[in-house]
């Protein structure tokens, strides 16, 4: 087991409206850990509590109860030097150029970057040629990339990215995904939120499905996808009695080949034995598992 970078225990956040005496729950008893070098995807629909969780870890919100520990010892506010944060739909000072913006954020780390250093940082996010342009003239994808650059400015060990791919076109999404993977290859730990399943599936090593402020499922992508088998598809040749198999599941014929969708995994060995005894030839046995999307929908329905 690697070093624990983020440790969250029984985290609760309740938003209170002092005048209306109303309360709403942001997160309700979250528990999870992120190890060094992992890309952890927090997956959930809008309003599930993803941003609340990320803001608490980033030190922008205070938990109502529970504990957040970063790097084994710090509370979020103390760990600011070691984290990089990209907020959802980031907004930056529109009057500054890309170069001035990075210089400004670098100074918040007590660093003064020269032109070459700024160029290097902007080259990583593909904005070297736009360094002299004002942020107000940047496209959404460029703002997201400069946001990524400001998150990296202090060379953080932990990157917190809130919906880094939302609202981007396919090229923009690819670019940001490449940036995330590039940072992972440098050994950075990355926590990011998304409601887009394919992104999480493509990038993350570990995922947490969050709904109504509660974590419904957490584990590595492999563990989650392995956990539930939807059906077993058996491909058979030379089996004349296809009607015989219908009692075990859905049967479909394509020429001489029969496909059986076996719903009950426990009957697998019995069915295989019967097919062979009756002269059938088994070409393949493929367990068809739930996709991440199906897991997600299952968690929602539960």
């Amino acid at each position: 087991m690697g070093m624990i970078i983020v440790e969250i225990k029984s985290l609760v956040k309740i938003y209170k409206s002092p005048f209306l005496m109303k309360k709403s729950i942001g997160v309700n008893g979250l528990d999870f850990e992120i190890e060094k070098g992992e890309i952890f995807g927090l997956l959930g629909p809008n309003g599930a509590g993803k941003t609340t969780t990320l803001k608490i870890i980033g030190g922008l919100l205070k938990p109502t109860s529970g504990k957040v520990t970063l790097f084994g010892k710090y509370v979020p506010k103390e760990a600011r030097r070691r984290i990089g944060f990209l907020p959802e739909n980031p907004s930056f000072y529109r009057h500054l150029t890309g170069k001035e913006l990075l210089q400004f954020y670098a100074r918040l780390y007590g660093k003064n970057l020269n032109d070459n250093e700024i160029k290097e940082k902007l080259e990583v996010v593909g904005l070297k040629d736009s360094m002299g342009k004002r942020i107000s003239s940047y496209s959404k994808g460029m703002v997201q990339r400069i946001g990524f650059a400001q998150a990296l400015i202090g060379d953080p060990e932990l990157l917190i990215l809130d919906e880094p791919l939302s609202g981007l076109d396919p090229i923009g999404r690819r670019e940001i995904k490449d940036l995330i993977e590039g940072e992972k290859s440098k050994g950075k730990t990355i926590l990011f939120s998304s409601h887009i399943l394919s992104d999480v599936e493509a990038i993350c090593s570990k995922v947490g499905i969050i709904l109504n402020g509660k974590l419904k499922k957490v584990g590595s992508i492999r563990e989650i996808l392995k956990s539930d088998i939807r059906y077993i598809e058996i491909m058979i040749e030379r089996f004349p009695e296809s009607g015989y198999l219908e009692k075990y599941g859905e049967v479909r014929s394509e020429g001489k080949v029969i496909y059986l969708r076996l719903r009950e995994e426990t009957k697998r060995d019995k069915v295989i034995k019967e097919i062979i005894e009756r002269g059938g030839k088994i070409i393949s046995i493929v367990p068809v598992r739930l996709t991440l999307e199906e897991h997600f929908m299952k968690a929602i329905n539960e």
């Binding site: 922008l60 600011r80 990089g84 944060f85 930056f92 000072y93």
Partner: peptide, 13 residues
């Protein structure tokens, strides 16, 4: 209001 605070208060300030 402009959400520029998020990128400042998550820095060592």
């Amino acid at each position: 209001e402009r959400k520029t605070i998020y990128s400042i208060m998550t820095k060592p300030v």
